[in-house]
């Protein structure tokens, strides 16, 4: 089982100019590591919609990689989006499903199918060609570079341990976060 805080630290240490979209129990831990214009907490938004949002960013910014960190509960809430992404997957797209089997920020209630759903099989069935399930530190370290430079759209399932993360409360309102992301992507391009 992975420690998500350690995984995020390793991801942040390697990250350069990628857009990172976060959700739910990952949003605030990531914000403590990085909270610039290219870090977009998909909070105060709509649960499940981070991957299609990130897909839109990737299609509009083909020269820049977009990494979206999505929970298993969020993934289940918009499962069809795996098909939407895989129908024509952009090379600069990386999706991570952080699987802990619970809705963590509301008190770790179990998600439907916790422990029974095979997210790798779902992703492959939807059409993803590059899918990796990671459950230990050694494998994580080995596969970390693929998050940034893997050929074709990449999907990773991080098998993470449960923690007690509260409801995320970003420093900036979503409208401000959107404004500064667009500004970073369009005005300095």
């Amino acid at each position: 089982m992975l420690d998500k805080y350690v995984c995020l630290e390793k991801l942040a240490a390697r990250r350069t100019d990628e857009i990172v979209v976060t959700t739910m129990s990952v949003a605030m831990p990531w914000a403590r590591l990085s909270d610039g214009p290219l870090d977009f907490a998909m909070v105060e938004s709509s649960m499940g919609q981070a991957p299609p949002f990130a897909l839109g960013l990737a299609l509009a910014q083909p020269q820049r990689r977009v990494i979206v960190l999505n929970g298993d509960g969020s993934t289940l809430m918009c499962l069809g989006t795996l098909v939407t992404i895989a129908q024509n997957p952009p090379d600069n797209f990386t999706m991570v499903i952080t699987e802990n089997g619970t809705y963590e920020v509301t008190g770790n209630q179990p998600v439907p199918g916790a422990g029974r759903v095979d997210y790798e099989m779902l992703a492959r069935g939807a059409g993803f060609a590059h899918v990796h399930t990671i459950s230990d530190d050694g494998d994580f370290d080995a596969q970390l570079p693929l998050h940034f430079d893997g050929e074709g759209a990449q999907l990773f399932i991080w098998k993470i341990a449960r923690t007690e993360e509260p409801v995320p409360k970003p420093l900036h309102y979503i409208r401000e976060r959107a404004r500064r992301l667009r500004q970073a992507l369009t005005e300095n391009a």
Partner: peptide, 25 residues
């Protein structure tokens, strides 16, 4: 470019990402 989605909710998220990335969806 036409991008089909499986449910319409995705369309608004996807289009929002496109716009913030500089496209006009």
């Amino acid at each position: 470019q036409v991008v089909l989605v499986t449910r319409e909710g995705e369309a608004f998220a996807l289009a929002s990402g496109l716009y913030l990335g500089g496209a006009k969806p």
